[in-house]
Write a protein that binds this DNA or RNA. Structure first.
Lengths: 239, 239
DNA sequence: AAATTGCTTTGATGTAGGTCAAAAAACATA
DNA sequence: TATGTTTTTTGACCTACATCAAAGCAATTT
């Protein structure tokens, strides 16, 4: 728990992310009851840990602003990024199964999160069917996402993977009202590579190649997608 | 829905898989209420579909006997196996998020499943906290499993992947009271390869190599693990 | 402004696993 | 027992990506 994490009361009912986040589909009255979970908003600086592998599980976390990466640590020191999460997304779902966090979550930039004590969330979702259903959907969506990555890792070549990654980011930025074609990466080549099962040099070369082909413009971490359609085409092309 | 799938009433309370399956941790009385979901047991022949990609989602399925594979179909014809499921395991969780099945489930051998209508399951789990908790754990476990496969696909070499796969099977057979060291594979080299992100020839060579090294005995689909510890060691060895 | 530090890019070379092809088993059907 | 079909094994060769190495940049500190 970083020192610089002042807790403060927060309210879903007045959060501008409510459309994306846990309260989807709740009535005003139900949303107030969600507020009563007495969720706290905490701040994190870049590279602070939200939780570590092995930590006791108590809460899920809704990212309020900023972004996190989750990663698994292998016994032998290898580590692999399992996801990059942004505002409105819920993390910590993997810990429900064993009451212990199986991976760790690290802030990629200065960020804020709402803590959602899981016991209280379960109790409340017994009372509010639409919350129950939504919680199930969130968990199921994570399963679908993970299976998409399995497909990517198991059957796509390097440039297809990077294209899929960029399109996924693009789509998520769009959902948040940001530009789908111009954005700043908050992760290094190394982290992208870890996520995509590739080495950082391969990521760098793929970026350069996309740029030479006129599909994107890259200046280090600043990305501009020039042709979304060519990027999409790149995912299916077997060459 | 195959023609040869006579539906018949089944009861968790008298099922010998209850220890592994959905009813874990329920009292006798609670288990009876689960029986009232009026779940039906259906039979499937090898290569019958339990559900197909795109089907409307209505139910989860508990495998009562036999085994299934789940696979995603890529747009371009590529398909990838996302898992092999055996008795006591629950499938269909990926469909909750969108109410449409995202992948398809195919029987690997003659099998039986209990159908669990999801609406009823949700209703019941609002009444029975331990069922609610267990359902959450099952979903979370699937997330952890998928992330384990991401790690495997993203950072292990061919023989490490196959070793991990065999150990996983071994462990699951053991849980079911079967031999952890002698078993019959119910999937082809091709299917194993698809699951592990490798080609069938690579799987075949890895089997042969393990056999030459005296770690296992293979006769086509009959496997005997001679040294579980060497197999385990193989996962971490970088060579 | 110089120095330190941590990314990123690019090139040269190596290799694990893919691809192609053919033979050998296993299995199924008659 | 013969016969066709599918799966598995094995070999020879190829390629996409990894590895190794060096240089270029950007950000931070002194």
């Amino acid at each position: 728990m970083p020192l610089n994490a002042p807790a403060q009361k927060s309210a879903c009912s007045s959060c501008n992310l409510a459309e994306l986040c846990l309260p989807i589909g709740l009535s005003a009255e139900e949303m107030q009851r969600l507020d009563e979970l007495s969720m706290q908003k905490r701040s994190f600086l870049r590279s602070d840990y939200l939780y570590r592998s092995g930590d006791k599980f108590r809460s899920l976390f809704a990212i309020s602003s900023g972004s996190f990466k989750t990663q698994i640590l292998h016994d032998d020191g290898r580590e692999q990024v399992t996801g990059f999460q942004m505002a409105g997304e819920i993390i910590g779902l993997d810990a429900i199964s064993s009451d212990i966090h199986a991976c760790e979550a690290v802030a990629m930039e200065n960020s804020r999160v709402c803590e959602l004590p899981f016991n209280k969330l379960e109790t409340l979702s017994r009372d509010i069917p639409s919350l129950q259903r939504h919680l199930h959907k969130i968990m199921s969506r994570e399963i679908v996402r993970d299976q998409g990555i399995m497909l990517l890792l198991g059957s796509m070549r390097a440039e297809e993977r990077l294209a899929a990654f960029l399109l996924n980011l693009s789509q998520r930025y769009a959902t948040r009202g940001l530009s789908p074609t111009r954005f700043q990466l908050c992760m290094s080549r190394q982290e992208i590579g870890s996520y995509l099962g590739l080495k950082l040099e391969t990521i760098s070369r793929a970026f350069s190649h996309f740029q030479e082909a006129g599909i994107i413009k890259v200046r280090v971490r600043a990305i501009e997608i020039i042709s979304l359609s060519e990027l999409k085409a790149g995912i299916n092309s077997s060459c």
